Simulated assay, not measured.
Amino acid sequence: MQSVLDVVQLVLNLYTYIIIASAILSWLIAFDVVNTRNRFIYAIVNFLYQVTEPLLRPIRNMLPNLGGIDISPVILLLLVFFLQSFIERYLRPFVP
């Protein structure tokens, strides 16, 4: 059971980096630093969108309209950090 919790923690850590990369890449696209017509960049953007959007969309639907500010990645990161903390504090002590 300990190894299952380790794998879950690893996946959550990787997902944290994916969320951050997605947010940074969206800023770079918005400020026209990165061109999405490049096939390699488009493949990266498409992958990040497909991985993060299923969890970001429900959060965006629940948030009020804040204009051009999207805080859904921050809320998703807070949820991931909460889940990691929950695993460390409550699940790991009971695993032999």
Rank of each mutant, 00 (worst) to 15 (best):
I18S: 00
L5E: 05
L28P: 13
N61E: 04
S72L: 06
I20R: 03
F82E: 01
P96A: 02
L63P: 10
I71M: 02
I59L: 10
V7A: 07
F82S: 03
A21M: 00
L83G: 14
V34L: 06
R89W: 07
Y15V: 02
V95K: 04
Q9P: 12
Y17R: 07
M62D: 14
Q50S: 10
F40M: 06
L10N: 03
V4P: 02
N35S: 08
V51D: 00
A21H: 01
I24W: 12
L25Q: 04
N46Y: 00
V4I: 08
I41K: 05
P54A: 13
L25H: 04
R89N: 12
L56T: 14
L66C: 07
L91C: 14
N38F: 03
L66M: 13
V8N: 14
F47P: 01
L77N: 03
L66P: 10
N65C: 03
L76Y: 09
F81K: 00
F31S: 08
V74K: 15
L14I: 15
L91H: 06
R92I: 07
W27E: 03
R92G: 14
I71E: 02
G67C: 09
S26C: 05
L79N: 12
F94T: 07
S72V: 03
E88C: 15
A23I: 13
P64D: 09
L55P: 03
L78I: 09
D6R: 11
F86N: 10
I59T: 09
F31M: 12
F40S: 03
L5A: 15
T52A: 03
N38H: 15
D32S: 12
I44C: 00
L12F: 11
V80A: 09
Q84P: 11
F40H: 04
L56I: 05
R57Y: 10
V11K: 09
E88K: 15
R39Y: 13
A30D: 08
F47L: 01
L91F: 03
T16I: 02
A21T: 01
S85I: 08
V33Q: 09
S26K: 06
A30V: 03
R89I: 15
L77Q: 12
I19Q: 08
I75M: 12
S3A: 11
R89C: 15
I29S: 01
V74P: 00
T16K: 14
L78R: 04
V80T: 07
N35D: 12
F94G: 14
F81Y: 07
N13W: 06
L79H: 03
V45T: 01
L63E: 12
Y17C: 15
V74Q: 04
S26Q: 13
A23E: 04
F86M: 08
S22I: 00
L28D: 10
N65A: 08
R37V: 01
V45L: 09
F94A: 07
Y17G: 09
I41A: 02
N13I: 07
D6H: 11
W27T: 04
V4E: 11
I75R: 04
D6Q: 11
N13D: 14
P96D: 01
Q9A: 05
I24A: 09
Y49R: 00
L76N: 05
I69W: 02
R60N: 11
N61D: 04
P73Y: 02
F94N: 09
R89A: 07
Y90L: 12
V7H: 09
W27V: 07
I24E: 05
M62R: 13
G68T: 05
N61K: 15
T52F: 01
L10Y: 13
Y42K: 02
L83Y: 11
I18Y: 00
L76S: 06
W27G: 14
I29M: 08
